[in-house]
Design a binder for these strands. Structure first.
Length: 110
DNA sequence: AACATGACCCTAA
DNA sequence: CTTAGGGCCATGT
C-alpha cells in the first residue's frame, strides 16, 4: 500500500513551534522559521498558517512580523482584526497597530 | 517547465 | 519614523 502522508511542506515543524509560544507572548515569522531549523523560510510560516482553519487550537495569532505589526489584513464585518482581538484578550497591548517586541516577544534564550 | 504570488526579512536611504 | 528594493523559496496556475 502506498502511504503518501507526505506534507505539502515541513508545515508540521512550523506548527509545532507555534504551539510553544507562551500565553501573552508573540513570535515573529522569521523566529519560527529559525527555530524550525529553516531560517530562509520565513514566508512559508505565514503560508502554512494561512492554510489553517480559524477553529484550530494553534495560537497562530501570536505570530507577527519583524516590525511588531500584524500581517494578517483580513477583517470581520465590524472592521476588526481577529488577530488583534485575540492578542489584546491575552493582555498584549497594541499601540498604533504595533506591538512592542522588546516587551512581548517570546525570548527563546535563557 | 516558466512565471507569478505570498499572514516575510533585512538593509539602505 | 517610512518606503523601496533585493533576497528567499514552496505553491499554484
Amino acid at each position: 500500500m502506498m502511504d503518501d502522508t507526505e506534507q505539502p511542506l515541513i508545515t508540521n515543524e512550523f506548527l509545532q513551534v507555534v504551539s510553544l509560544i507562551p500565553y501573552g507572548k508573540v513570535a515573529t515569522y522569521g523566529q519560527i522559521a529559525k527555530l524550525s531549523g529553516l531560517p530562509k523560510h520565513a514566508r512559508h510560516v505565514g503560508f502554512a498558517l494561512k492554510k489553517l482553519d480559524n477553529h484550530s487550537d494553534l495560537p497562530w495569532y501570536r505570530v507577527v512580523n519583524s516590525q511588531g505589526k500584524i500581517s494578517l489584513q483580513k477583517e470581520n464585518e465590524r472592521g476588526e482584526n481577529l488577530q488583534v482581538l485575540k492578542l489584546q484578550n491575552e493582555g498584549v497591548f497594541i499601540v498604533d497597530g504595533k506591538i512592542n517586541l522588546k516587551q512581548y516577544q517570546w525570548n527563546t534564550y535563557e
